[in-house]
Design a protein around this nucleic acid. Structure first.
Length: 151
DNA sequence: GCCAACGTTGGC
DNA sequence: GCCAACGTTGGC
């Protein structure tokens, strides 16, 4: 089983939205590196839910991959912000996963706490200028995050 | 709102 | 294939 991190702006879609919906298709990713990570996910993988572009950025909760190789439907929707006119239904460009809510952390693990425990190379969200919205998390780092979240 | 950092685009 | 210009991201 692998661990990952997904970024989202809570004003658009936060951990509480996922809690309410229970599951969601993680649509709208339009970056090839991020897409490749999405395609590498396996059912059962654990995913940290990161809140970005908000007053208290940080890791807000946990979810789990429950379906892989999902074709992102927004790429074919002309009214969607994520419409990709160059993507063909017989050869979709953008693939994603469906995730299921697991837990909202009692307290968001903010950047200050994360920086105390991890280097930018261990946790890529800490890298300056990092814009990648889907990234892998090493098991040792994931275990530590889970430990921090319970305290 | 600012601005540094990054990915993408497009002219050549 | 290069690279400057541009648009976007995201912390502050």
């Amino acid at each position: 089983m692998a661990y990952w991190l997904l970024k989202s702006e809570p004003d658009v879609y936060g951990i509480r939205d996922l809690e309410r919906q229970k599951t969601t298709v993680w649509d709208g990713v339009r970056n090839y590196q991020a897409r490749n990570f999405l395609r590498a996910m396996q059912v059962g993988d654990l995913v940290f839910f990161y809140h970005s572009s908000t007053a208290f950025p940080g890791i807000a909760g946990l979810c789990r991959v429950i379906e892989t190789e999902v074709v992102d439907p927004t790429q074919f929707d002309p009214r969607s912000d994520y419409f990709d006119p160059q993507s063909r239904p017989d050869a979709p460009r953008w693939w994603t996963v469906r995730v299921q809510f697991v837990q909202a952390f009692a307290n968001v693990l903010g950047l200050e706490v994360l920086r105390q425990h991890f280097s930018p190379d261990e946790l890529w969200t800490l890298r300056r200028g990092n814009r990648l919205s889907v990234m892998p998390v090493k098991e040792a780092v994931a275990r530590k995050i889970l430990e921090l979240a319970q305290t």
